[in-house]
Every structure is written in C-alpha cells, then in structure tokens.
C-alpha cells in the first residue's frame, strides 16, 4: 500500500524511471545506499566536531542554541532518511548475500515500509517531544540487540573465504543496525533533553555508557572507512592513486575517530 504509493511518486521522476526501466530497482537502491552512506560519513565528521564542544559545556550549549531552530530541527529529522534507509537496505543486502533470502522484491518493499514508519514516528516524537525512557535501560536493550545481530551474522559468514574486512563490514553493519537507529530514536524521545548539555554530560560520563560509546565510535568509523575504501576502489583504477587516497582517508577518519574516543574518555 504505502510502498505502492511511494513508488508511484518516485516513478514520476524522469531520471529515476529511466534507471528503473533500464536497470531495475536494485540498481537505484544500491546508489541510494552509497549516497546515504556518504552523507552519514559527512554527518559523522560534523557530529564529532560539534560534540567536541563538550570540552567546554557553556560553549556547547550556546552552539546548540544556534541549531535550535525550525530549519535545523527539520534537517535533523531529514537525517533520519539516510540513517534508516541505509540501515534497512544494508540489512537487506546482508540477508541477500549472506542468508540466501532471494525474495528481493519483498525485501525492497519492507525497506520502504519500515523506513517510512520510522521516519514518521521519529517526526511524531520530535513534535510531541516529552517521552521518557531511562537511558541505561534503553542502551542495554540496544546493546543486547546489537550483540545478538552481529553474532548471528558472524556465525553465518565468518567461515566463508571472503576477504576479512568484507566480512567485518557485514558484522559491523549488524552491530550498527540497532545502535544507529536506536541512538537516533533515543535522542529524539525527548527533543529538548536530547540537546541539553547537562543531560548529555551526565550520560556521557556514566562508565557503562563510555564503553558503549567507544565501541560505537570505533565500529562506525571502521564501517565508514571500509565503505569509503571500496567506493574509491570502484572508481580509481590507478594503483598508486588508490593507495594514496586510502592513506588520506584513513588518516582523516582516524583523526576523527581518535578525537571521538578521546572525547568520550576524557569528558
């Protein structure tokens, strides 16, 4: 129902229907997955940069003030699109390539439906803005879900002869699915609190949270880094140039990852 409507809208775009007609939906989704991944990387860098403001809570609070307006709220909501799409589509890919689920058309529909539900719910939460769940409890649930998912994937694919990093990419995807979608969700249960310096400081300095956050940062940066590496490999034929770019990317992402970890551990 929803997806049929959505697809109807999407097909109205000439460029899109050109590709749907000539390459199929899978092709579009792969591109969308890639673009979403890249957007997320950019966001991640920006995110760590803003969070680094936490070294100086007052400055951070004033910074948050700056973002506290309709446009940025809307953009924040918009961020849910790449987040949830990439997460669900990634899951679809893992299921197709690792779990022998060949009903791709059905999965694509689910990606659309679930994404829509997530995005709308998130929007709703942001409007209502006063839900409460204990952070400890929420993150416990997410941590358990992550552990279970990544273990399932690990057990399914680890014995194959695929490249190690490739396999890690899938396992990290499994970890990230609850982590990222849950993180985003949680941050918006109570929109005001989610942006409140004190609440954040309190949470980030709790020892249990520290472990989780460090894990989160490392996994995301690994996943993003390897994702970027493969994308570069798709376009750059020249070996030297490819190595150069890889080193550059690793360096930038490494610096940010380090900054992220350091932040969590020292704040």
């Amino acid at each position: 129902m929803i997806e049929a409507y959505l697809i109807g809208i999407l097909e109205r775009s000439e460029r899109l229907s050109y590709y749907v007609g000539s390459r199929g939906w899978g092709f579009i989704l792969t591109w969308a997955h890639r673009i979403a991944g890249l957007i997320l990387i950019l966001y991640m860098l920006f995110h760590v940069y803003t969070l680094s403001g936490l070294y100086n809570p007052e400055a951070f609070a004033s910074k948050m003030k700056f973002f506290d307006n309709f446009i940025f709220t809307f953009l924040e909501w918009g961020l849910a699109v790449p987040v949830i799409f990439h997460a669900l589509n990634g899951t679809r890919l893992i299921l197709y390539e690792g779990f022998h689920v060949r009903q791709d058309a059905v999965m694509i529909r689910w990606v659309f439906v679930l994404s829509t539900i997530y995005i709308l719910t998130l929007g709703l939460l942001m409007l209502i803005g006063n839900q409460q769940v204990s952070a400890g409890f929420f993150w416990l649930v997410v941590a358990i879900a992550s552990a279970i998912l990544s273990t399932i994937i690990y057990r399914k694919i680890w014995h194959t002869q695929n490249v190690m990093l490739w396999k890690l990419q899938r396992v990290s995807g499994g970890l990230l699915l609850p982590l990222v979608s849950g993180h985003m969700f949680f941050m918006h249960l109570n929109y005001k609190a989610g942006h409140d310096v004190d609440t954040i400081m309190a949470r980030i300095s709790a020892p249990g949270m520290k472990i989780l956050d460090v894990a989160f940062v490392s996994v995301v940066f690994f996943h993003a880094g390897f994702g970027l590496y493969t994308v570069v490999g798709d376009y750059v034929e020249h070996r030297l140039l490819r190595s150069g770019l890889t080193i550059l990317m690793s360096f930038i992402l490494g610096v940010f990852a380090y900054a992220g970890v350091k932040l969590i551990l020292s704040v």
């Binding site: 899978g26 792969t30 490999g233």
Partner: peptide, 20 residues
C-alpha cells in the same frame, strides 16, 4: 580469483545484471 579484490567484493548486489 572469485574472492580477490576484482571479484565478488566489487559486486554490490545491485541486481541490474539479472534485470537486463
């Protein structure tokens, strides 16, 4: 050959191949 860098890792399951 299959799992080498020019092999399966480059396939993103776009399924355009099957489509056309």
């Amino acid at each position: 050959i299959l799992y080498s860098e020019q092999g399966t890792p480059r396939c993103r399951t776009a399924r355009a191949c099957s489509f056309v």
